[in-house]
Amino acid sequence: MKSLEEILAIARSIGWGASYLLRSYYHGGLNNPELDIPDKDGPVTAADIAVNRYILDRLQTNLGNQDFAYISEETYNAQTDGQLSQPWVWIIDPLDGTRDFIDKTGEYAIHIALVKDSRPVLAVVAWPEAEKLYYATVGGGTFVETRDGKVTPIRVAARDKLEDLTLVVSRTHRDRRFNQLLQQLPCQNQKSVGSVGCKIATIIEQQADVYISLSGKSAPKDWDLAAPELILTEAGGNFTHFDGTPLKYNQGDVNQWGGLLASNGHCHAELCKEAERILAELEGREK
């Protein structure tokens, strides 16, 4: 098998190629009749399908299927029982933030993560409209690469006072319970950003500090979180369940249920405890 550095070079190249392909759909306009494919969970466009095919084809051509398994949002069979048996698994989201793609906010991303024994070891998150690609390997730090080829190490902000922290939140996907949680947190500064990948990039770029996911009728999936988690943690941040336990991937159920909190790493445990306390009070009132 190739070294992690060689695999990363391949993943970065694929990330840029996928980014250019996705932008060609984005700037081609939504009058294209191909950009209208219904999906049971929400909007899926021809762009999702094309970029998914491009990423899988390039990965499998370069790396094969003997050492690696592949989980992709667009090809995953929800009826599959149990986790994939290979220790190395690629987890891919060809278009994170499809609604933002359709609504033309520019806040959509591409996630490519390599997971070993349930934890990410390599990640690429491309933000096509920012023309940036974030990448990380476990223990190797996080870097941002721009279209001109410039590579810069990147770290989260040092803000460490609860009241000074900024939450990055969605414009949609916010039910009553989640809004009540946000209203009672000690940090009340908010910034609205689209996809999860773009939210985490916003934290890495020091424009925000905290992201919270609270599952309700649905939950974020492995492909929503695996790549963003690693680029955040390798940039000095933290990403856990509210109880402090790490996220695990390729566990059979691709849903990441419960409360999840990503932060710049400062006040992380305190915020997790506060979120748990608030939720317990809310649930107590509803009984």
Rank of each mutant, 00 (worst) to 15 (best):
G139K: 09
S218T: 14
T45A: 00
G15W: 00
H27K: 10
D209W: 04
D209P: 13
A262Y: 11
A201C: 12
N77I: 11
P33A: 00
E234K: 05
D160L: 06
V121Q: 08
T172G: 07
D117H: 14
Q83A: 15
N32R: 09
P220Y: 01
T245D: 04
E145S: 08
E74M: 00
D48H: 00
A113S: 11
A11P: 01
T45R: 01
W223P: 03
Y25T: 04
D164S: 11
G216S: 14
E145L: 10
T245P: 04
I110C: 06
F101G: 03
G140A: 14
A126N: 09
R177K: 06
F143H: 07
E145I: 04
T152H: 15
L59H: 01
R99G: 05
E163P: 05
R177G: 02
V144C: 12
T146W: 07
Q83N: 09
R147Y: 07
V144M: 09
V193H: 06
A280V: 02
G28C: 06
V151I: 15
E34N: 07
S19L: 08
L4P: 00
Y20K: 13
G139M: 12
R12K: 15
D243F: 05
G29M: 08
L84C: 07
T233V: 15
A226Y: 03
R171N: 13
P38K: 00
K217E: 13
S19E: 06
A275M: 05
V210Y: 06
A136M: 08
P228L: 12
A78I: 12
V144T: 05
V125P: 04
R147E: 10
A18C: 04
